[in-house]
Design a protein around this nucleic acid. Structure first.
Lengths: 163, 163
DNA sequence: CCATCAATAGACCACGATGTCCATAAACAG
DNA sequence: CTGTTTATGGACATCGTGGTCTATTGATGG
């Protein structure tokens, strides 16, 4: 039964704050970490506890993240003894954009950085050229990078060129 | 005359949420907008109300943003009749990175995206190659783009509907 | 069947970011 | 000097994100 402590008091929550220009949310970063872990290992199921340790993510919070990744069809899960999480498809078929999308980070679409309703090359807001340079870079990064890239890299990676 | 209403008002706060991959915080985006407005105009002082309208930013919140920009030495301010805000130095000398820095967005420093304490080319985390590609792009964007760029941009091509 | 393991679900909380509002200080016009 | 105009400063409110915790469901092994 839930003890429901009415005097919930002494919690120290060292919430991870954004300490710089962060292209993605904390949750999305956690998702990238854990997907990377899974891509680097064999295809055996890894438990949430195991993954949390490797990716340095709070266990209970990670389980929420994992749930979303399962719901998005990027992971499959198995309960019970010997269960855990596995990639739902080959690492080369999972783009960073898919992972970010699963975490609710839309693909940076056409939103105008200047606050105009719409803004395009024909009728650009003052920030348009500078901003689209940035968002193009972000978008192609997320769209072109796959888990296979990070799985291969890390220890001794090849200078992999995307384009 | 309004006197400090003690009862909790049912205020509608349509807080702007991140609706996608957002490289900078909302405040920082506001700062970029307003600095762009100032760079595009003449060097005459603009009031906060004026700027808020042009940049589509809540007035009272904008004044906080402006304060931070003044404190950072990017703007100078003048009180009283005819007062307002002006760029503290030429637009070509104000980089986006300066503006983001003033809003507390550190230059995306060496923080490891995988949660490792330290992580560099010598001892890279699994995400390092992919992540540094992204943060390099961000950093050079912020470091290379100046207000002169956006001022020159869509300026004299005033979006005027021809008749 | 029962114990155990592990995912699923969601209530709850803390805190920072965003946003509103009011009071005060400075500069100027009359 | 008085009043208006403007920036400055800070007290609040609200919401989403990050994080903790407990209970439940499903699978496996004995």
């Amino acid at each position: 039964m839930r003890t429901k402590n009415p005097t919930t008091r002494p919690r120290k929550l060292p919430i991870a704050r954004r300490d710089g220009i962060a292209p993605v949310s904390q949750s999305a970063e956690y998702a990238l970490r854990v997907m990377t872990c899974l891509a680097r290992g064999d295809q055996i199921a890894r438990t949430a506890i195991d993954l949390a340790a490797e990716a340095s993510v709070p266990v209970h919070y990670l389980s929420k993240v994992l749930r979303r990744l399962v719901a998005a069809g990027l992971l499959s899960s198995q309960k019970g003894h010997g269960g855990g999480f596995v990639l739902a498809r080959p690492a080369s078929k999972i783009r960073f954009a898919d992972i970010l999308g699963a975490m609710g980070e839309a693909p940076v679409g056409g939103r105008c950085a200047f606050g105009w309703g719409k803004c395009d090359a024909k009728n650009p807001c003052p920030l348009h050229p500078a901003w689209s340079a940035l968002s193009d870079a972000l978008q192609s990064w997320a769209g072109d990078t796959t888990l296979a890239d990070v799985a291969a890299g890390a220890t001794h990676k090849k200078p992999r060129r995307r384009g």
